[in-house]
Simulated assay, not measured.
Amino acid sequence: MSFTDYIKKMLTGQSRSSDSAELSASQTTSSKTEKSGPTILAIDTASTSLSTAVLINGEVKGELYEDMERGQAEHLMSFISQSLEAAGIEFDAVDGIAVTVGPGAFTGMRIGLSTARALGLARKIPVVGVSSLEAVAYGVSERDQQGRNILVALDSKRNEIFAQAFDGRKRPLSAPECVAPRQALMIAPPGDTLLAGDATPRLLTAAAHAPDAFYDTTAPGLPRAGNVARIAASRWDSGENLAPVPMYLRAPDAKRIEDQGPKKDK
């Protein structure tokens, strides 16, 4: 069953008995083929872009990416459908869904997470979270890295940035933080450090008089769904993926009415 047909059935509330039969047939067919690792649908909407991809036997297929500050909710389903079609599989063949949990834009995080949860619930398959910061670090090439540490900096659209340090094997060296650019530089361990992420220009400016050397990379400044899928697959059996809940590092811009103004005396 195509992804579009599957969504139509979800929306119309049709019985899943036929779905179960189709899934059973699909599994019988796929069992004849050697499978190496899970088939993962990956989604990223946590920043100012939209990206989807499918990982099959360790190979990324059907990856789509587009800068998109608004309109992610309207385009996400179409992107998923196109990625599945380009990968040459139907939605029934997906073993799990990986989604970025932030840090990033509040609305974007909610779009990706709510969609991933709904699809996972409908199919009864796992939904796992991946940090946006780690997904960017994963995109740094070995040619750029050469064993050096990485400092990922993502734009929060405010004075602060989201930052986290990683070692030469892309393992976290610090917790994700929301800090000023100069404070972010202090997160990096001593020595030469590569900068990655869309807030890199702000860090390079702040690093002009830093005692250590900081270098730009050719890595994409925002997460790519293909890397999100690879990270999720590497932790699939160990269960070390993050829970599919938003990673908030700062308070939301919009406050509830009862949170505004002075507190009333009881």
Rank of each mutant, 00 (worst) to 15 (best):
R70S: 02
L64F: 15
G96C: 03
G88Y: 02
R110L: 01
T52M: 11
G62Q: 02
K61W: 05
I80L: 05
I111T: 13
T107L: 01
E85F: 13
G58N: 06
G62K: 03
L113K: 10
G96A: 00
D92C: 09
G102D: 04
I97Y: 02
E74L: 11
G58Y: 06
M109N: 01
I97C: 07
V99R: 01
Q82V: 12
I111G: 11
D67L: 12
M77Y: 12
T48Y: 12
R110P: 00
T100M: 06
A46E: 14
A105S: 15
A86D: 14
E85S: 14
A86L: 04
L55D: 04
I111D: 03
S81E: 13
I89W: 02
S51I: 09
I56C: 11
G62E: 00
V60W: 09
G112M: 00
I111A: 11
S47R: 09
T45G: 05
E63Q: 11
S83L: 05
A98C: 07
A86Y: 06
S47F: 15
A86M: 08
S49P: 00
G58S: 11
Q72Y: 08
E69C: 07
V94Q: 07
G108E: 02
V101C: 04
A86F: 00
L55M: 09
G96V: 00
S81Q: 09
I80P: 07
L50A: 10
R110G: 05
G62M: 01
